[in-house]
Design a protein around this nucleic acid. Structure first.
Lengths: 231, 231
DNA sequence: GAACAGACTTGATGCCGGTCAATTTCTTAA
DNA sequence: TTAAGAAATTGACCGGCATCAAGTCTGTTC
């Protein structure tokens, strides 16, 4: 791997490795070893990072910016699955199964990533089994969240899914009741399996019921969190 | 662990270990070691194996019978997540995160299981890292399937979800066009996020369109698989 | 600052699919 | 075999939400 070394350890693009939960428990020396294999990449706003069906052979770690991960359904419609912020990664599924992306990824704004070749990563998995355990923990969380999301789709109405999403925003933002939506309403609609129109209407209805107070494009104040969750 | 030994290696309830993909790559001696830690359990038809909120400290492997795994949504409605057959297991999520079940499990028919204590399994994970890799692969598949399912809920109509499910039945049954539904229509409705009435109506409609031919309770013949998938 | 494109809102309309109810068919137990 | 209780079907009804169509507002680029 040493021959891939592009620059020394202090390169900015490598620093993100230390942000990633699956690596940051390692010894400094081991972390350096991983950093040697990292390749930088950058994408302009709106640029596609990989497409569904692309050969998938790398792990992408977000260094700066924001990435949208979409999934295409059988009939070609797309759903927003997740938004990646610095320290998050994608491409991990391909490590353990067929090597074609099922999803596609797009830069929301100008974005810098670090990529690690799949083969390099697999070497590290064998060399440092603790990484496997970290990835297992990550997968476990993701699976849990994904199944929860599926159950919500299967059993809850759109109104409830929106309310639950707002509650999650409160949690993510450390319990503050002044929240900021992490994405546009169009993206949110895709994520929640509805339309921007319906999101807009439900939020207005919540406001008329005195449950929330909208303030500007993506900001709002949650007035009655408990009542919101009873919907 | 040896002191837990309840009987010798030939015990029937232990044999299932060799059926489980995450263990069956091990050396016979290692597999025996795991078998020593296995405890048998049996449940009558309809009996609950664990509830949402229960302390979760074991992996359950189905030896004989069938188990339904349900998830409860925030408002108490339940969705069928998965059905376990012999060789399948549940309780794996709790290995890597908080130790409370988010789902609940119920025996569909009289069922025998093997349980492995979480602490025992964690020892094995450290001792035999190859098990981690197998579980990673399993998780990776599950995550992939779960996200696909979520995307279907988000983007496809009930009619399409039913058609896609039928296509999966064909795959699972080795491409045979004479398929058997793996569960009752009530369960299927819960799994697909709809109602038994709607399932019944859509299948009748498929039949009237000449796409399938229903024959008896849970059996049918797929006449035009391609057309079914264009819906 | 003007102009433009996106993002968001609001209204009107229609239909998919959930709900309730009444049979009918199948399964299980006595 | 019969009886009882599920499971499945079929019909009537209607409400939630998608769709289409106009706007309004925001932010960005000359």
């Amino acid at each position: 791997m040493a021959e891939k070394r592009a620059c020394n350890h202090s390169c900015a693009h490598q620093a993100c490795i230390s942000l990633v939960p699956i690596f940051n428990h390692l010894e400094p020396a081991q972390m350096d070893e991983i950093m040697q294999t990292v390749q930088p990449g950058s994408y302009k706003k709106g640029e596609v990072i990989y497409r569904a069906g692309d050969q998938s052979d790398s792990l992408y770690i977000v260094n700066k910016g924001k990435i949208r991960i979409y999934r295409l359904s059988e009939s070609g419609k797309e759903q927003l699955v997740r938004i990646l912020n610095p320290g998050n990664f994608t491409g991990e599924l391909a490590l353990f199964q067929e090597n074609v992306h099922e999803a596609y990824a797009e830069a929301v704004v100008d974005t810098e990533v670090c990529t690690i070749k799949r083969s390099d990563l697999q070497e590290f998995l064998i060399k440092y089994p603790s990484i496997s355990l970290k990835i297992l923990s990550e997968f476990s969380n993701r699976l849990e969240k994904s199944e929860r999301q599926t159950a919500r789709f299967a059993t809850e109405r759109v109104e409830t899914r929106i309310a639950l999403f707002l509650a999650e925003c409160v949690e993510d933002q450390d319990g503050s009741l002044h929240i900021q939506l992490p994405m546009s309403k169009k993206d949110l609609a895709s994520y929640l399996g509805t339309t921007p129109e319906t999101i807009s209407r439900r939020l207005t209805a919540f406001e008329e019921q005195g449950l929330i107070k909208q303030v500007g494009q993506r900001k709002m104040e949650i007035l009655k969190l408990d009542d919101l969750l009873l919907i």
